[in-house]
Design a protein around this nucleic acid. Structure first.
Lengths: 131, 131
DNA sequence: TTCATCCATCGATGATTGTCAATATGTACG
DNA sequence: CGTACATATTGACAATCATCGATGGATGAA
């Protein structure tokens, strides 16, 4: 299996005795961007998070979910807000979920996504902290 | 000429009578991600900024420049910090400069880049504001 | 002028990404 | 059971991206 730098498995072997951290869990431990030079490894952990965020559709998904009543939204609601196919929306939601920006809760036939606000807050501190 | 959504020229015709805003200048006007659903246009303006940030090399460039003495660094300093060719570093610096995250100042033979801290602050507010 | 240095641009290439149609999986209801 | 619906996965394709070597432009020194 070939694993590239953006893959969660890239940095360090993941064994049964280690907790595998999602990208978002690795951000809280870094001091702000502008405080100290980032190591290659730190940068390699942070980039996938920003990459997940760096798409117009995913930005809108995130803000739609956050603004939805109860702080969560099911996929059916979200599909209707875009001129995109259902698999495409599902694909974007998966990306946001994999890096830890969205929580996923299946209830019956429906799947509800909610925003991990702590993750966003940590990311904001990383970018804007120490200014 | 074909212009895609990530191009600064995409949203609205740019004429001599209009100021052309770099992506970073368009961020300050948006309320935080989680406060109100983003419009397609807003998302389309913000995404290029995050995309510029969402690369391990560019993240390190930004933090190296910010941490460098005087808050600026010349390209020659930066080249040495990476195992990448000079054109590649130049390419990444250009991307950061084009979206407004880096300022560029040519003095003699050298080019000095510095971080637009206001841009980072605005971006942080966009992501983490209202949490 | 000639040469060396710093940086940017060009053109090419392999990798990654966003999107879709088709299909699969899972759940609820008769 | 079978049917309908909600969501995920697969496979394919065009577009974008990160990277390089080669080259070009500008500056300063000899």
């Amino acid at each position: 299996m070939i694993v590239n730098m953006y893959d969660r498995r890239y940095f360090g072997a993941v064994t049964k005795t280690h907790l595998e951290l999602s990208p978002v869990q690795t951000v809280a431990c870094c001091s702000p961007l502008t405080s100290t030079p980032l190591s290659s490894e730190q940068a390699g952990r942070i980039a996938p998070l920003l990459k997940a965020l760096a798409d117009p559709v995913r930005l809108r998904l995130l803000s739609l979910i956050a603004a939805h009543e109860g702080g969560e939204a099911c996929v059916c609601d979200l599909n209707d807000a875009f001129d995109l196919s259902q698999p495409t929306i599902s694909h974007h939601l998966k990306q946001l979920h994999e890096v830890g920006l969205l929580d996923r809760d299946k209830r019956g036939t429906w799947v509800y996504y909610s925003v991990r606000r702590d993750a966003l807050a940590d990311l904001a501190t990383l970018i804007g902290g120490g200014l």
